[in-house]
Design a protein around this nucleic acid. Structure first.
Lengths: 298, 298
DNA sequence: GGCGTCCTTCGTAAAAAGCGAAGGAGTGCG
DNA sequence: CGCACTCCTTCGCTTTTTACGAAGGACGCC
């Protein structure tokens, strides 16, 4: 073996993170002996020691630290490759590749897609969540058929149509000091503890980025999957949350919450549908676009 | 095989570039059957067709085009990893890792390193060429022991010492229309055909970048390894070249060339030695630094 | 000295990868 | 229409690689 491979790097990273070959092997679902031999093989191939061994396990050498940086970058890039390639694998008659940002995904698409799929039994939809700029790029490249993005995204030469309008609001428990405010700026809530969505969520990455622009980090107490879950935890009073207004209005009916509009321009989300070329889309995708464009439905 | 590996991607890229599995297999030093089976395995793993097969060979499908983008990025990143790791592998008593930009490499280091190695039989030097900003980063990270950079580079907290001063000059054949000028600006030579160094050369990448800042590209007729070779081809009158003044002065003695100073500030190269911490260097590296710092010698 | 923890080595088996040879598919030419 | 040519695929076999369980080694602690 002359050069390291991705499986080598994956095992190496798992061992470094676990702090022992024994634990790393377990995480990699390998026998200890196999993992040990493989690490030794990597060290032979590179001509360098990657770990110091001890009774407490292993610690990376300086060379191991360097390899870790590269391993993380390569494995992340490989994950992106596999994910993007998996999007191609569904291409075929009746299959529609749809990218959405977080607002649309949670609030509007479930009902609309349910109706679409009911009316088109042979169609399938691959729905994934992305940031708006990522969506426009993937639609432009032809990797996705349809995108739903915030109007602030640069859609370049893509064809776009209005979709829905929504707004992020701050939700707080009733009785919270902010509860009486008519509106609030994002930067003014950064001192609060936050209940957020997990890192895979596009909005979560948007909020982290907006906080970074203020030279701050979000004080995340917990990260959940889904805005409804966020509202429930906010109701318990352990932090504040940012959710779409439509989610908040629905949650207020059943939870002791107060919704406060965010004053920032980026918090108003005029959502738009974008496609590379409506005329060039397969018929099933075109019919989905027409449904998405139809006036607001319950 | 569930996920693609770097060897898969390397073979895939070779086939795509060659235009046939037969030629790609040859370039990868594999039998045709092995390459064919491996591509088929990749297509199975990804669930997507990567190539259209025909009597003329193969052409990438849209999915294949996407994979090619990712493959190139991953393989480039893997090459950087292996190269950086190979720098670690030489670490040891008496081994010195030295990074230099192109001027120093060509003009000053051969004589100085020759003298150093003559006086220190047990020492070894791993000398590589980089752009100055790359050098400062790798020295700061402890991956290299000693760096030689242009004084314009941001050396941050590194310890630096003067090394040498040099200047890029334009060399042209005697009789060239520029031959009478006392000096010339880089942007004024961009209409000329160029004789350059190969893409691995730091100065070549610097010049390409400077040209890009003028919204231009270098008109490279040929790319060579070494300034002396550049001078010889310039003498033949097929283009102009940019080389260190010391090279030009030596070349003028034996070739029908004219050297014209470049007027741009960046063309004046005050070279400096940088180290992370002189006191912390192994003794052999410290002694090399002292030799490098000594006043100009023949 | 015995015990516990973690890593390394060994022999073996299974899986993967590669090879040469032969066949298949498709196109162009006489 | 048959043949030749080009390129890819399949098959059977061999070699190499990878993984396993078991046992031993190194080291520190009680």
């Amino acid at each position: 073996m002359a050069r390291l491979d991705l499986d080598d790097l994956r095992l190496f990273r798992l061992i470094a993170e676990a702090g022992s070959i024994t634990a790393g092997a377990a995480r990699a679902h390998l026998a200890l002996a196999a993992a040990s031999a493989r690490v030794r093989g990597m060290e032979t191939a590179l001509g360098v020691r990657l770990f110091e061994r001890s009774r407490q396990g292993v610690t990376p050498t300086p060379a191991g630290e360097t390899l870790m940086i590269h391993a993380r970058a390569l494995l992340a890039q490989a994950d992106r490759m596999h994910e993007e390639m998996s999007f191609h694998s569904g291409a075929g008659a009746g299959h529609i590749r749809l990218l959405s940002n977080t607002n649309a995904l949670a609030e509007f698409l479930p009902d609309l897609l349910g109706r679409f799929l009911a009316s088109a039994p042979a169609a399938t939809v691959d729905l994934r969540e992305r940031l708006s700029d990522e969506i426009t790029r993937l639609v432009a490249e032809g990797v996705a058929d349809i995108g739903i993005v915030a109007s602030t995204a640069d859609t370049g030469a893509l064809e776009t149509f209005p979709f829905r309008s929504d707004q992020f609001v701050l939700v707080v428990a009733n009785g919270h000091p902010f509860a009486g405010r008519p509106a609030i700026a994002f930067k003014d809530v950064l001192d609060q503890d936050f209940v957020g969505l997990d890192q895979a969520s596009a909005i979560q990455r948007l909020l982290a980025d907006r906080a970074a622009r203020e030279g701050r980090r979000l004080r995340l107490r917990v990260q959940l999957r889904g805005f409804d879950a966020v509202c429930r935890v906010v109701e318990a009073g352990v932090g504040v949350g940012i959710v779409p207004e439509t989610t908040a209005k629905r949650a207020i009916c059943t939870m002791a919450l107060t919704a406060i509009p965010l004053a920032d321009p980026w918090a108003t989300r005029d959502l738009r549908i974008c496609v590379k070329s409506l005329a060039a889309l397969p018929e099933s995708a075109r019919r989905l676009v027409e449904l998405l464009r139809s006036p607001g439905l319950a």
